[in-house]
Write a protein that binds this DNA or RNA. Sequence first.
DNA 1: TGCAACAGGTTGTATATACAAGTGCGGAAG
DNA 2: CTTCCGCACTTGTATATACAACCTGTTGCA
Lengths: 252, 252
Amino acid sequence: MPLLNPKIRHLNTGQPRYQQVKTLILEQIQAGELRPNDRVPSEQELVSHYGISRMTANRALRELASDGYLVRQAGIGTFVADLHARSQVMEVRNIADEIRQRGHLHSADVITLEEITANRIVSRKLHLPDQSPVFHSVIVHRENDQPIQIEDRHVCPTAAPAYLQQDFTLTTPNEYLSEIAPLQTVEHTIRAIIPDKAARMLLNMTPDEPGLLIRRRTWSNQKPVSIVDLCHPGLRYELEAHFEPQLPVTTE
Amino acid sequence: MPLLNPKIRHLNTGQPRYQQVKTLILEQIQAGELRPNDRVPSEQELVSHYGISRMTANRALRELASDGYLVRQAGIGTFVADLHARSQVMEVRNIADEIRQRGHLHSADVITLEEITANRIVSRKLHLPDQSPVFHSVIVHRENDQPIQIEDRHVCPTAAPAYLQQDFTLTTPNEYLSEIAPLQTVEHTIRAIIPDKAARMLLNMTPDEPGLLIRRRTWSNQKPVSIVDLCHPGLRYELEAHFEPQLPVTTE
DNA sequence: TGCAACAGGTTGTATATACAAGTGCGGAAG
DNA sequence: CTTCCGCACTTGTATATACAACCTGTTGCA
């Protein structure tokens, strides 16, 4: 059983210890080494193995349980949760794939690709200190040369240090980021807006046409990776989400 | 400042103390006494006021932050988060519950409740022959008497034969339908629109304000049950989706 | 045999303590 | 006046300790 990795007995990266324990367990779940209903080490076992205190082990397991990865039962133990309970699927669609799937040609103009200092909103959303350097890109996506989306993205530099060196006319930021920072969690906020003049110009929109703004924030390894505003002509875009509702939930 | 309730100095219900602190703060947020960006008592203040240990106060605030209700910043303090930033599972939310959860009053006006013959679009979406009879309802939902959503729904009669006999000022169609036809699958389509004059009147919108149209189709027992258009004032509404992508994909 | 009591493991909570790190302020030094 | 240092306050983490509640298997008694 790969419950406790004998090779790792000392936690020594810069991260908090409870976080390292979380990551170790999460990696085993995502690698399939720990399967649903498998038992994970008890708090005491983690204490003995890694030389941490029980409260630290407790916090790691408790938070993983709160995130839905584990199920805990007093007097029994801690187990890998059924992943089905969290199987809601709403794909983060790659606009390039989407366009190609329609048999059309995708192209992209890189308007901006730079390092800037984050303003308050961005830094907070990315969990960075104010005024931190972040990477910023603005890209216009075209379908058969018709502009259909403005992508305004801020990226956490630690998550993608080589972001500024990419050629985003060939690979979308989405593709690049999902390669180097496997997607873990996504949050979408959607609102209707009236685009400003610059955005209208880029998208060939008329002044009376509403736009759809999708703000998407992605996480990898428990940390925010990027926040992106996707602006679409409102009458031409559709976002679809398919998911299965949770099955009867027994906990709380 | 309603930060600390002087009437409550002893935590003594059967619940864990950290949970009681969480509830006290959450109640103030939901009651509107604590508004976004308001400061929340520091850990030390909670310690002195309630006679708990700092770790207990820490846990309460930390979990509320992890749930998205609070934002914490080392060296500064703890603040009520922007409601927008709250991460939630994208569920088929019941607007009535949602409003009540904010501590506000929900009411609904039934504008239309009738049987009509389905047009081409509706009949196709519901997998019915053209010109089939379907039930049709238009309902305006109000939050504290302020209209915030128009619900325009078409329902397949076989799935809900008694639909026309319901009193939808008491129970929302969503509640009723989910009771008699357990939800199986949902499809969302979102677009920005400029509402027509009738919709603008119902929602108190200005002519230059964009609207958000959410078209939701639900299935039960492999068959479409209803299709509903939800129209919101675009600048005032946000839809949030939080989900985890599939882990190692084994199914289909 | 049947049942009660107990022991030992598990999670859940609560506390006191400690140190690190981030922030803002004021006062001292230049 | 400006700069820098230190202090006070904040959150973040880590530990040791304690007790409660829950579950299981065993032991011992009737």
